[in-house]
Design a protein around this nucleic acid. Structure first.
Lengths: 330, 330
DNA sequence: TTGTACGCGTTATCAG
DNA sequence: CTGATAACGCGTACAA
């Protein structure tokens, strides 16, 4: 199927390119007769405008850059994937496509390439480190971009779930159930989201006129590494329960408790971020915060498009989480 | 930082665009003097050719389409992510970028869009269903594409790991260790890879002059669904062990055995596809097939680039797996 | 060794 | 209502 251009269509119909172009874009006035003829021919021969030429003329690529850190591990991946879903939906609706940029740690070369070569109209960053080089570069470059997550820089447009609120609410629930000493097992300390949750954790205690010790909060809890140790200490120091920042950690806790014969929820309570089939069906079923990441990507993409169009935007703190109480915190 | 064009550079230096263009591409002979001057100016002002204009002129987009099924679940995701890594590396090396296309089941609209709009020079498909609509569409469209995985169509360029050999080899090892009745717990039946492995499974038995019953092979084993049932039957019917098609399944088996007090490896042997930290550190550690998916993406991308350049290519069956024997099959 | 002029496929401006 | 014509930014025959 040879690729057909607007000129081919115009010549075949004995009209000018302009007429064809107008038929497609709907701009400008043309007679119903010619419009119909052109439409038909286009349908018939499946003519599609060349996006590259359109881009050149419009000075826009109709591509959104999406940064995916290569070091994402299994957990972040599902998060990333769900975000992509939302982004992809919005992009498609608006005639945009997604250009992927895999960046390795602080090495922004790959991102720089797509930006400097003008291959994208804007960029979405899917996480934010405390000191993120991608963000730094994007700010310098002047290209429109939004960050999914939270960052301290007020100039950066951000879209995030209300992790603070979610963690705070979950913690409060556990406190209400009688817990006085809770643990918080987290992701990378470098990751802002971990710290936001910690803040919510502390806040809940403060609201209950209690104090959360800093030693109750664990970052960089590598699954097979720290969990056993944490539980041993928890047992010695009579902690009432633990909040895990992701499913994998919760899973590890569950396994360790089984091994150490700690009963959940009788001896120890367990709750987790990110609801999943596993948490819902494990024995006991685990209380979890269900977050709609797809929505997050959706809103981020919409925000970026507004930014590209020059419309005013503002940071969004979606409250799209839901706490699902299950047996593990009974 | 206003965007600067080749004309700007040319005028500023009092030379023609051609000279600047040649300096960059290295084609054609120009004096060392002017070359140096141009080089310097370019560095200084950080001039980068506009990729869109280049694309239009060259009639190539320098984009590779990458199809990501939205229904990927956690396991496929890590696989997909690792492939992407390899693809991304090759792409970057060759001045290409990756355009993502998320397709939903049989709905190829998203894929069709990027192909018909000429936004990509070729496409990589990251899995192959028994009856894959994406593949069907790509064949019709005539665009160069390669499939990561195996498909029955000999006209389609394929890059795959030798899953048949891997599964066969692993099965043989278990047979050699005295197993006579083994189970194979798999992914989606619709997924060709599952069937390829089943073939390897059968082959190993045949080589040992034994026969694998079809009832030993389970497809669509949803983790929390079938595993308990399978193990109950295994126990009743005195199976010697099980080979799982992914880590998650192995994990479920491990959990169930603990619950049912089946001892591994004494009562029952366990092996799995896709090595991971979990399998390496679980108790007992699980024998696994380690596969280098990044390499797979790497080779797929290289193959696609050759295809795009019109060079001859052939299907690749990488033997880049490695069986790691651990306690679970002692 | 360097420059001129044209084509790549579209859209937009300005005449008719 | 419609049609030339000029951008958009770059590569490249062809000419000098």
């Amino acid at each position: 199927m040879s690729t057909i251009t607007i000129d081919d269509v115009a010549q075949a119909l004995g009209v000018s390119k302009t007429t064809v172009s107008r038929t497609i874009s709907g701009k400008g006035r043309i007679s119903e007769g010619t419009r119909a003829r052109v439409q038909e021919y286009i349908q018939e021969h499946n003519y599609k405008p060349n996006a590259v030429a359109q881009s050149l003329a419009a000075q826009r690529t109709f591509n959104l850059g999406l940064v995916c850190p290569i070091e994402y591990e299994i957990f972040n991946l599902t998060y990333f994937h769900r975000c992509m879903l939302g982004i992809s939906e919005v992009a498609a609706e608006n005639g945009y496509d997604i250009l992927l940029s895999m960046v390795n740690g602080d090495d922004v070369t790959n991102l720089r390439r797509i930006v400097e070569n003008h291959k994208v109209d804007g960029v979405i960053l899917t996480r934010s480190l405390v000191d993120d080089m991608c963000m730094k570069y994007l700010k310098e470059s002047g290209i429109p971009f939004v960050v999914i997550g939270t960052c301290p820089d007020p100039e950066v447009v951000q879209v995030d779930n209300d992790h603070l609120g979610a963690c705070s609410e979950l913690t409060s629930i556990l406190i209400a159930k009688g817990c006085r000493k809770l643990l918080l097992a987290g992701g990378e300390k470098q990751n802002i989201i971990s710290q936001t949750r910690a803040k919510g954790f502390r806040e809940a205690f403060r609201r209950a006129r209690l104090k959360a010790e800093e030693s109750w909060i664990y970052y960089d809890t590598e699954i097979r590494g720290l969990i056993p140790e944490i539980l041993t200490r928890a047992l010695q120091e009579h902690a009432d329960g633990i909040i895990c920042m992701d499913e994998k950690l919760a899973e590890a806790v569950l396994a360790q408790c089984r091994e150490k014969e700690i009963r959940i929820p009788e001896d120890f309570k367990l709750a987790s971020f990110y609801d999943s089939g596993f948490l819902a069906h494990s024995v006991p079923a685990v209380t979890a915060i269900d977050i709609d990441d797809t929505k997050l990507g959706f809103v981020a993409a919409q925000t970026l498009l507004k930014l590209i169009r020059g419309e005013p935007v503002q940071n969004q703190h979606l409250r799209n989480y839901q706490i699902i109480l299950r047996e593990s915190t009974t």
